[in-house]
Design a binder for these strands. Structure first.
Lengths: 161, 161
DNA sequence: CTCAAGCGTTCTTAAACGAAACCCCCTTGC
DNA sequence: GCAAGGGGGTTTCGTTTAAGAACGCTTGAG
């Protein structure tokens, strides 16, 4: 059946998220959206993605409320795609992907572009929102509510290497 | 050419990262790897992914150094797949995906499983590793090294909504 | 000797992709 | 008035990939 995302049956926030943004093109579309891209032709040109694929991705992003359309011309009828709040909350996802690639593919400091926060190099660090500490691999636990299958909590609570 | 990831030409850490882990199954494989899964049959059973696809994904993860194989039996020859350091550094990626799904799909606190850090609910927060501040949308800048095309820095430095 | 576990590979079929053509609506220029 | 062009897609068609089931291989157990 092609790639009809049958991992949907998984009751897990990660799987659920991937239903929405799990496509590689989708993430690049969002990257460019954060980059200020708003229109069909801009994405098409930058990404080189097939037009039908782009149209389809934009449609599902709108459907899922990650992007919304906003008319910018009546005649001819034209609209642009803007990030919603829900979409804007994906920034940390893009930032962690960015950071991983920069360090693990390009090699520390050899990335073609880097980010600067207030004058100093920016690197994202993940901390616990409540206590501000960086959680180790051991002190994160999962709590199930009403699910039997051990899905994801241990996932991130435990190291396996 | 099917989906031969031609966004490879993009000189961008995000695109580069997606070359490695941009497939939806790959991310679920990694989720389970963090969950303690180490063997072919375990993944196959949990994910319900086609065996040929699983084999192919594991192969490329090993090729990219995200997983490594470790023999656990000589006769018959068997090995398991373990996260490398490089792979373990993907934890923040999984955590941000988890968090986004929990909040934006299940709705605050309604996720089937949640995470607990040292007794209190865990939510990841992203801060600047240097100064510890949570970067706003305005105070992040991109610095190009030798690339002409405006690719990603603005992406994350600027809001577009 | 047969069976089962564990890890894939091979095969067929049905989606999804990629590329290019085509279409609609409107504006501009001649 | 009519061709040219920009913007935003949809249609068509050939190719690639994924899904799913079957098969193969090696070894240990009964």
């Amino acid at each position: 059946m092609g790639r009809t995302a049958d991992y949907s049956r998984q009751t897990c926030p990660i799987a659920a998220t991937l239903e929405v943004i799990g496509d590689p093109w989708t993430l690049l579309i969002l990257r460019d959206a954060f980059n200020g891209v708003k229109r069909f032709e801009q994405w098409q040109e930058r990404l080189g993605v097939a037009r039908n694929v782009l149209a389809s991705r934009l449609k599902t992003l709108v459907m899922h409320g990650v992007l919304r359309t906003e008319p910018y011309s009546e005649r001819p009828p034209r609209h642009e795609y803007l990030l919603t709040d829900k979409g804007r909350e994906l920034r940390p996802v893009l930032l962690t992907l960015y950071d991983w690639g920069e360090r693990n593919i390009y090699g520390e400091g050899r990335s073609p572009n880097r980010m600067v926060h207030d004058g100093h190099p920016f690197r994202p660090k993940m901390v616990c929102a409540s206590c501000g500490e960086e959680p180790g691999s051991r002190d994160l636990r999962r709590v199930d509510q009403d699910v039997a299958a051990p899905t994801v909590g241990e996932a991130l609570a435990r190291d396996a290497g």
